[in-house]
Computed example of a mutant assay.
Amino acid sequence: MSTLFKQLEPAKPAIDLPDLNTLLDAIKFNEQGLIPAIAQQFDSGEVLMMAWMNREALDETLRTGRVCYYSRSRGKLWRKGESSGQQQRLKSAALDCDGDTLLVQVDQTGPACHSGRRSCFYIELADNRVEINAQPLIDPAELYGKA
């Protein structure tokens, strides 16, 4: 754990806190320079998706208010909704106590999942069986213009 995050454990809100850049510099990005980011709908608490951010994506997200991730498959920044129109507007961002996971509370436009579902977490595992717990809101072919 970063020394800075250890020092923050007894800190009181708004007292003895580092500036934002100092804190961002202390984030524990993995070997690929990434941190997991969990997206949660700000008003309902619904967990929408998990993606990765690098420092550049995090900086852009904080600066613009539009959530930006890092696409490992494409090897570049991915501004949520750039091809589907289903954007995420940042409401708040928080790091966990170890500085190695990010929670972004967002206002999601339409489905968050490439499958056309509201949430990426629609494959339910229960009692030795698998169930689909949500239907697509939008056909993915329609969502991405592949019809």
Rank of each mutant, 00 (worst) to 15 (best):
G45Y: 15
D25F: 14
K6S: 09
L62T: 04
P140D: 01
D139K: 07
A147H: 14
R74G: 13
R79N: 01
A147V: 13
A51L: 15
S115I: 09
A94C: 12
I123N: 11
K6R: 12
A57P: 09
L24G: 12
I138A: 03
G85N: 03
V104M: 15
A11T: 12
S71I: 10
T64Y: 06
Q88A: 10
R129C: 10
D96R: 07
C113I: 04
A147S: 14
K12H: 04
S2M: 13
M50L: 15
L20D: 06
K28M: 11
D19H: 05
Y69V: 11
P13R: 13
S73Y: 02
A26I: 07
R79F: 03
S2V: 02
D96S: 14
F5Y: 13
E142A: 10
L8N: 08
G75R: 14
V104D: 00
I27Y: 03
A134P: 00
S119T: 02
E56C: 03
A26Y: 01
L17A: 12
A57H: 01
L77S: 09
W78Y: 11
F29H: 03
G145T: 13
T22H: 12
C113Y: 00
R89Y: 03
D43Q: 07
I27K: 06
K80F: 10
D16I: 11
S73H: 03
F42Y: 09
S92F: 09
R66A: 14
A11L: 09
N21P: 02
G145A: 09
S119R: 01
M1L: 05
D100W: 05
W52K: 12
M1V: 11
C113G: 01
V67I: 05
E131T: 00
E31K: 04
E124D: 06
S73G: 05
M1S: 02
A57M: 00
K28S: 11
G65D: 08
A51Y: 03
Q108V: 10
L143P: 02
S44V: 00
F121E: 05
G110A: 07
R74C: 11
I27T: 03
P18K: 00
T3R: 10
V67Q: 05
P136Q: 13
R74E: 04
P10I: 05
I15S: 15
C97R: 15
A126D: 08
Y122I: 01
V47Y: 06
L125H: 10
L17W: 06
T101S: 12
P140Y: 05
C120E: 07
P13W: 00
C120R: 06
P140Q: 02
Q135A: 04
S83E: 06
Q7G: 08
R66Y: 06
